[in-house]
């Protein structure tokens, strides 16, 4: 895309933000690429504030101090709960934090594209705009899988599957901005795996002490489907003593629990299209989001879909920044006259 002079002007900082359920990232035209876990915590009381020394904490810092904080994960289920929780405030804080990480110069205008889970765009359009617009001069909101597709230049005959924490978003690209019927969201995603893993481990190791955060870390480190040669042993305290636990089977069962819904929805999305295009789409399936890092998931899906004819599934190279990089590319490609209106 040809840029106008105004866009090239260094007075404007273009920012792409991926506001994720579990992690949020920012990529900006000055070369900054940063991420944070999508947790926000406020000190529970005056004493906690004195101890922590900050009015608000983010990401891993918030998680480390969670006992002293009112912890909030604003997009936990892929949508913002407007006005009935601190979700809106938390989104605002995350955006403020991410924009700060982008390091804009003094007086520099910020033009931002924000990618959000599909359901959130459907439901919280105005709330997101309200939360973000305070910190930027001009703003556009898009869905995460669409931002990924745009960033990878996959604009036609492709299916992007963004396996996030709260939701798995499906988005079919066919040369235009995807409509509502081109997108679908299911709740079989990272958090669902965590729940399953927590319950399997609680069942197998009833006397061991572990929490949901530990379970999430186990999943992120060891997740796989089908088979892997290595053993998986983790240290979990039992009566205060660290004891090694074999969790390979539980990890496998938990990760595989999302596969039926994933396969079923993929075939359903493809089947919606004209048979002529179905072949093209089947050969251009892209896995994105943290879930695409599950070992063996790409191969599993490719084999499962072979039943319906030849297909090719690939994964994005950098799931953490694929959304924000795509959003940044959108921001930079957007003609200046469009920014003026928003």
């Amino acid at each position: 895309m040809r840029q106008t002079d105004a866009q090239k002007n260094s007075d404007i900082l273009f920012v792409g933000i991926d506001l994720g359920t579990s992690r949020s990232s920012v990529s900006s035209s000055n070369g900054v690429r940063q991420w944070t876990e999508s947790f926000v915590g406020w000190p529970k009381d005056f004493i906690a504030q004195q101890v922590i020394g900050k009015p608000v904490l983010f990401g891993s810092e918030a998680l480390e101090n969670r006992l002293s904080l009112d912890l909030c994960r604003p997009l936990e289920h892929g949508i913002i709960k407007e006005g009935i929780d601190r979700n809106e405030d938390a989104v605002k804080e995350i955006i403020r934090h991410l924009i700060g990480l982008a390091n804009p110069g003094p007086g520099q205008k910020i033009h931002a594209v924000v990618g959000v889970p599909s359901d959130s765009l459907k439901v919280n359009k105005l709330a997101i705009r309200k939360a973000v617009s305070e910190f930027v001069h001009s703003l556009m909101v898009v869905t995460e899988p669409f931002a990924v597709a745009y960033g990878m230049n996959v604009l036609n005959n492709a299916l992007v599957i963004d396996i996030g924490a709260g939701t798995t978003d499906f988005c079919i690209m066919h040369g235009t901005i995807p409509a509502e019927e081109d997108q679908k969201t299911i709740l079989s995603a990272g958090d669902y795996i965590d729940e399953q893993l927590f319950s399997y481990l609680s069942e197998k190791y009833a006397n061991s002490k572990f929490n949901r955060n530990m379970v999430r870390l186990f999943k992120e480190k060891y997740s796989f489907v089908r088979d892997i040669p290595d053993e998986i042993h983790v240290e979990i305290p039992v009566d205060g003593k660290p004891v090694m636990h074999d969790i390979k089977n539980e990890i496998k069962r938990a990760c595989e629990s999302i596969l039926p819904a994933l396969t079923e929805t993929t075939t359903e999305m493809i089947a919606r299209f004209d048979p002529e295009f179905q072949i093209k789409i089947k050969n251009n399936i892209i896995l994105a989001g943290g879930g695409s890092l599950i070992r063996g998931i790409r191969e599993y899906l490719q084999d499962a879909l072979k039943e319906y004819g030849p297909c090719r599934v690939s994964s994005v190279e950098d799931p953490l920044f694929a959304g924000s990089d795509g959003a940044l590319r959108l921001a930079q490609d957007m003609p200046e006259k469009y920014w003026e209106q928003l």
């Binding site: 556009m140 898009v142 604009l155 040369g175 235009t176 901005i177 490609d333 957007m334």
Partner: peptide, 16 residues
């Protein structure tokens, strides 16, 4: 195609 998509994003946000 890209120009069409960018206009789509812009119009979508105007509608919001």
């Amino acid at each position: 195609q890209r120009a069409e998509i960018l206009r789509g994003v812009y119009e979508d946000n105007l509608r919001i």
